[in-house]
Amino acid sequence: MLGYAIVIGLLCWLVSSAFPMWLRWSCYFGAPLVAGLVCGVMFGNISYGLQVGATIQMAYIGLLAVGGSLPNEMAIAGYLGVAMTMIAGLDASTGLAVATPLGLLGVLCQSAKMSLNPIWVHKADEYAAQGNIRGIKIMNLFASQIFPFITYFIPAFLCVYLGGAYFESFMNAIPPQITSILQLIGRMMPALGLAMLMQVLNKKTTIPFLIFGFVMAAYLGMDTTSIALVGCGLAILHFFYMKKESE
């Protein structure tokens, strides 16, 4: 359990804060999906991991971080949520009921980091006034990691290391009615993310495409890649028509 706890703790910390941004985008927004593969390899059951990761990810697909904050901390919900679900051997659709509360607690980790980091910014202000470029770089790259390490690595590590052994019996003690409620919540939750996405994307001129996508998936059973490719073709057509109209 010690090794697992260290890996999960490190992932929560690195993905939430320390990875370079271009890599963090994917590992953060796709946290449950990526965690599914990582934990699958770690616990030696890849297909179970992928199942749990993909199922939890669905609920988060439409979430948008506007102005830097999310209602749920994705790194914790993803890496810790998937790991705890797999440790307890829970059904993939129950996983969301584990990930969401953890993600809500994770918002506290994030707030703590965001509130404490200005200390280093003030230190960097002093270095800037002295023309000390090295000092600025050290503040940005290394000092900035002290609080995230404390607020992400330590809680995630302790949760797996101390909680892992009891979590399975705790989840097993839950009556089946509660479990089926939790699973239904998990199945309904993607509707919220997708509805939020609809709010951002909604334009009168593009509503027909929502219907096309639905029909291709529900009636024709096409996979997402081929539907996205059809979408690319239609997007190019749409672009040409709009260009013609404005000319």
Partner: peptide
């Protein structure tokens, strides 16, 4: 807006697949 076309078509598919 053209990218929105792909967004909407995938959104329609996700409604069928993810819920």
């Amino acid at each position: 807006e053209s990218l929105g076309v792909i967004g909407m078509i995938v959104l329609g598919a996700l409604v069928a697949k993810n819920i």
